[in-house]
Structures are given as structure tokens and as C-alpha cells.
Design a protein around this nucleic acid. Structure first.
Lengths: 214, 214, 214, 214
DNA sequence: GATGAATGAGTGTTCATTCAT
DNA sequence: CATGAATGAACACTCATTCAT
């Protein structure tokens, strides 16, 4: 059954490629045209497919969003985990690294948070395949735990003051979330790009200074 | 003309009351059911009016949003200004006060940022009465300037390290924006309320520690 | 009862004045803004009254149209009758006079035919007070009969060839109707006014030449 | 690729058939129920399609009208052109032929002028695909020029008196326009059909007599 | 597997008309 | 007599989604 197996593999490969193609198209379109103003047909056109074809790979318009988000969360949680694991970097350093990480994430997909938000604001969550939801929560949780672990480490080593490691993780999230939204809203008025980088720089610097002992 | 005048007054009062009534209804509905999923009819029903009646007081569905936002921005910018003016409070104290302020703002209307965002993401801005837009920008600008002035004061008195007062103002905004969004997204999964307060507490504490000398 | 009577008179006078005021406003508004695009409120605003007030003097939006039309038809049928009655003018001359008459009618209200048409195209005729309809038909008929009589006279005196006096009357109507519509449609593209006069000139000249014996 | 090509052809054919089907339905409905009182749903029902389907083939309700008009103008301008080209027919004869032509046009679509008019009266012209507008103007111009050419010929050959060939063309248009409108308005009151034919007969006869030299 | 064609279920918005005051 | 306020009834148009081919 080597042949059948290989065929099976190829098929799955093909499927994954198509999904990727669609997700990339979706990402591009959402980035330039907001969210609710994007139609399924827009995505399809960008992906050079028919609207109907999208429904072969995704259950929903919303499903496309979530998958987009999952993609990024996967990337993010991966990088966070590997950062956390690294034994030889001081916790303070790790926070500095977070700046780059978040910046990368934003460059990877600036719309991700916005998409996430839109998704939640819509009542479309019920229409999702239930497994998607758990994936979403699992990854989000994993990311946060990695983040928290970094602070736990810092506290364990006596370098951080505060004892609310979970809260610290949340706050970093908050800073990031807010920074992105802020950047986006500024871009509406005055597209002075890479505004994010500098603000994030200062914000996380302040944050680091605020939590370290000495 | 005392009588005519009073009648005129009463009429305007009546008008304002109706507007308020509609805005309150809108606020409630948006709060519970997201944004784009809310129909004009929903708002009307909540306000115990006919959909057509809304169009007597607002130009648009979008106009209702902006007016909602304006309402809050007015409140916010007012409180920020009076905080900034206060001569006898130390800048560090003022930052502490910000926590309460932002918390109040959030209690007053948790959806505000979300609405603002949605509004900007939509292409509906052109459909707005142009004066609304300038109101919006004016108030947003005023708020930020008040915030910046607080940091200017802190620096002038040599109590704050950093010299980017505008950036500091931005960062506070970021923290607030992010916190609210974060709270909202948590509430979707687990409605453990008043999460905002404690996180904001820590976040602004850290922030204050991070920027003060000594 | 002299006083009561006079009061009664005055009231009726007042009523007629108001009606006239509304009709004039309507005429102006329809002239500049087409037909179906005009709202009752537009008319009211032009008449410096409230929309509700119009309903004190007219049953309907359509009623306003018909009354407008009746007004003109009255004027037209009056002038046609007095032209027809005139014993000392040769039928050929009378045709020449028609040019002026129609031109006057057009100046009096260029939109009249268009209004008439719009009215008929709408299904609003059922909503009219039935007496209005008979007035309308009576006056239209009277006008046509006057016109026909002119040609009858011409034939009786042996100056016109054709024997279809009714048809001749129709044709004059047609020329007029067509000329107005043509003028209007030209004005859409190129508002070179008083195009009507010259074309009507030629058209009725040709017409006269075409039906006279030498 | 003969097969692919044929498939392509078939598809386009199918498309054109649907458009025709919709236009025919629209023609019928407009004919019996006026213009503005017809809803998109009415047309759709008559065409045995869903309202949404119409929007696959036409941009607008107005677009449907214009297309209807274009259809007729195409037919009309074609016939006018081929009439004008004919070298062996005397100009007087050609005028006689016009009667049939216009009659045919009217039978083909009695509502055409009315539609045209309604269209222009509405402010919907901006909502049209811009190419439609140029098509419309091009065809209208072409028709008029053909008509004018006929009179030019007549004058060149010394058979017509007047020297305003453009005006003559206009007048024929006027007669036609007026006749149709007249017929329509008569039909409202008393549907004695084919009234148009006889009146047009006489009108154009008179016209011919009026402009020929002997 | 891919799609062209079709549609059901909304959605924001308009406007003639009414009525309490 | 006049009107401000309110609304019911439409209506054009959109879009996610389905399905025969």
C-alpha cells in the first residue's frame, strides 16, 4: 500500500497548500480593507479561486478568520516557548527580546489582533467547528503560560519584584495589544509607519525598569 | 417673548432627551450584542421607538456610534483636563489617579474603544456629518494633550526620567486601550468581571515605577 | 347675516390663497428637481409651511399634481376657446396664433405635461378624489374640442384640405407635446434655452402649409 | 482547444439569453404598471428569477431601463441608417417609410420614450455604469444624424424647401415623441388601440406636404 | 476538485401620511 | 389653523452560502 499511502500524502499536501493560499489571500485583503467590508468574493478573487471553492477548505467566512488567527498564534506560541526554554538568557534580557518578538508578530500579520477582535465581536462563534475553538483557546493559553514562565523564572531568581507572574504576562499582552491597536488607529490619521517600534521600545523598557530589583 | 422663549427651550430639551434615550439604548445593545450584528431595528426596539424615528435624531447608523463615542470622549477629556490642571497633586499621584479615571471610563462605557475602532475600520466615515469628524478629532487631541501635559509637568519638576512626554502619553493610552481589549476578550471566555481593575492597577504601578527618578 | 357671510367669504379667500401658495411652490420645486425625487417636505419647505399643513388643503401628494394640471388646463382651454370664438380671424391665422399660445403655456408651466405624464404613470389615480378626475377629463376634452372647432371652421370655409378635424387637433397636440418633451430632454444635455420657440415655429409653419389649399 | 472555445461561447450565449429574458420581463411589467411603481421584485417575479439574480446581469434598477432603451435605440438607429443609405428611394418616399418605421418601433416597445424620460428625470444617471451613458448618447446621436441626412439629401436634390435639415430631423422626432406620448395618455382613458397608426399617418403626410416643392 | 449560477434572508434608509397638542 | 413628532410600509441592494454540472 506504499502507493496508496503516497497518494494520500500528496493529497493532503495539496490540501494544505490550497488552504495556505487562501489564508494568505485573506490576510492581504483584510489588511487593506478592514474586516466587515471584505466579502467572501474578495478573498476568492485575491486567491484566484471561486467563492465556492473556499467552502471546500473552510466551513465559514469566520472559519477563515480563526484559522488565520490560529496560524499566527501557532507562530507566536512557538517563539515564546523557545524563548522561555532558553536557559542562558537572563529574564531581563528576555523582556528585551519580547520587543523583537512582538514586532515580528506584528510584521507577520498586523491585522491579527484586529481580526481576532472582529471575530469575537461577531456572533459567529457558534457557527464555528467546535474543535477550532479549543485549538484557539489551547494556543492562547500556551502562549500566556510561556510568558508567565518567563516572569516566574525572574522571580525565582530574585530579579523581579512583583509576585503576580500571571498578571505580568497579562500586562505584556496588554501592552502589545494596545500598541498594535494604537498604531492602527494612528495610521488612519497619519500613516507615519513604524510608529509601533519606537513606542513599543519605550513601553517595554519602562516595563522592565518597573519590575526589576535594581 | 418670555413664553415663546421658554417653549423653545422646552422643545430643545425634549430633543436632547430623545437623543440621550436613543444613545442609551444603543449603548446597551452594542454592549451585549457586538457591533455589526446590531441592526437599526434592534436599537429602535430597545429605545421603544420606530426605526424611522432614529433618523430624526441621527443621520446614520454610524452617526449613532460616533455620537456615542463623542459622549464618552467628552467625559474623558473633561476629567483629564481637570486632573491636569490640579496644581497641588504630584505627577506621580496623578498617574495613580489615572487608574481610577480609566476605570471609570470603562464602567461608563466599556464598548467605547471597540466602537471607535469599528467606526474607523468601516468606510462609513464619509457618510458622517463632517462636523462630527472634527468634533471627534478635536476631543481625542485634547485628551492626549492633557495627558502629555501631566508628564511635561513631571519632567519639568525633575521627577520623571524620560523626556518623551508625548510618547508617555501614548503609552498610557496603549495600556488603557490594551487593557480594555484584553478584558473584553477574556470576558468572552470567562466572564470573571473586574479583572480590568487589578490588571490596570499593576500595569500603571509598574509604569510609574518605570519612569520616576528614585 | 352680512357679517357671517363676509367672514365666510374671507375664509374661502384665505383658503384659495393658501392653495395657490402651495401650488406655486410645488410648481417651482417640480420644475427644478424632476418629479418623483420631490418629497412632500420639499414642497412644504418651498411653501414655507409644514408638511402636515399641505394635507389641510390637498388630499394627497398626487392631488397636488392634478390640481397643478387643472390650473394649467383651465388656462389653456380658456385661451383656446376665446381663440376659436373669434370670428374675424382666418383659420390659417389661428394656427399661427397657436404657436404663441403654446409657447405661453410652456412658459406658464414647462413641467405641466411632464407632470401630467408622471401622474398617469403612477398608480396614484385611484387615490384621487373622483371629482378631480372628471374635472381633468372635462377640461382636456374641452380644449381638444376648441382646437377641433378651429379646423372644422377651416374646412367649412374650404381653406383646409383634410377632413379629419379631430385628427388635426390631435396632431397639434402631438406637436406641442413632443416639442416640450424634446426641449426638456435637450435641456438635460445642453441648456440652450428657447430652443422650443424656433422648433415650434418651423413645425407649425410646416403644419399650416401642409393642410391649406394653396 | 476547440472544446474549451465552444464551451466559452455557450456560456456567453447563456448569459445573453438571461439578460434578454430579464429585459423582456421588465418590458412587460413596465408597460402595464408604469415606471416608478414597479419594484425590482416585480421584474424578478415576471422573469421567474430571484431579485438578487437580476443584479448578476444588471448593475441597477436604472441599468435595466437604460439597457431596455439601448436595445430599442439600436434597432431604431439601425433601421434609420439603412433607410438613409438607400440611394434609389426619393426623399419624399423615405418620409413615408418613416411612418412604418416609427410604428414598428412603437410596437417593439411602446414604453421606450417614457422610460427614457423617466430615466433622465431621475437623478439615477450617476449610478449607471459610465459606458452605458456613452452608448446611450452615441446611439441617440447616430439616429438623429441619419434622420438629418435624409433631409439633407432632399434639399440637395431640390425637392425640399426648408434649409434647416437639423430642425427637420428634430421635428420628426417631435412628432414621433408626441404621438407616442399622446397615444399613451389616450390609452389611459380609452384603450382604443392603433390610434397611433392613423394619427402618425396623417401627421407625417402633412409634414411631407409642408416641406416639399410642389 | 472546481465553479457559475442562483437565492434567502436580511439591512439601512426613505417618505407619505397621521395626530395630539 | 398649524405643526412637531412619529411611524408603517416599502424598497433597492448585499452577501454568505448552496448545488447541479
Amino acid at each position: 500500500m506504499g502507493i496508496a499511502e503516497r497518494k494520500q500524502r500528496e493529497k493532503e499536501m495539496q490540501q494544505r497548500v490550497r488552504r495556505e493560499q487562501i489564508l494568505n489571500a485573506a490576510k492581504r485583503v483584510f489588511h487593506t480593507r478592514g474586516f466587515s467590508s471584505v466579502t467572501v468574493e474578495d478573498i476568492a478573487k485575491e486567491a484566484e479561486l471561486s467563492p465556492a471553492a473556499l467552502y471546500l477548505y473552510f466551513k465559514n467566512k469566520d472559519d477563515i478568520y480563526v484559522s488565520l488567527n490560529l496560524q499566527l498564534l501557532e507562530y507566536l506560541s512557538g517563539r515564546l516557548e523557545s524563548l522561555q526554554i532558553q536557559k542562558d538568557i537572563a529574564p531581563e534580557e528576555k523582556i528585551a527580546t519580547l520587543k523583537d518578538l512582538f514586532n515580528d508578530v506584528y510584521r507577520f500579520d498586523p491585522l491579527i489582533l484586529i481580526n481576532l477582535f472582529h471575530l469575537q465581536a461577531s456572533d459567529g462563534l457558534e457557527k464555528l467547528p467546535p474543535e477550532r475553538l479549543s485549538q484557539l483557546n489551547a494556543l492562547a493559553g500556551k502562549s500566556l503560560r510561556s510568558l508567565a514562565a518567563i516572569f516566574d523564572q525572574g522571580q525565582a531568581e530574585g530579579r523581579f519584584e512583583t509576585h503576580h507572574s500571571t498578571a505580568l504576562a497579562d500586562i505584556v499582552w496588554i501592552i502589545f495589544t494596545g500598541a498594535v491597536l494604537w498604531e492602527e488607529s494612528k495610521r488612519m490619521i497619519n500613516p507615519e509607519k513604524d510608529y509601533l517600534r519606537s513606542t513599543l521600545d519605550i513601553a517595554l523598557d519602562i516595563f522592565r525598569k518597573g519590575i526589576t530589583n535594581r
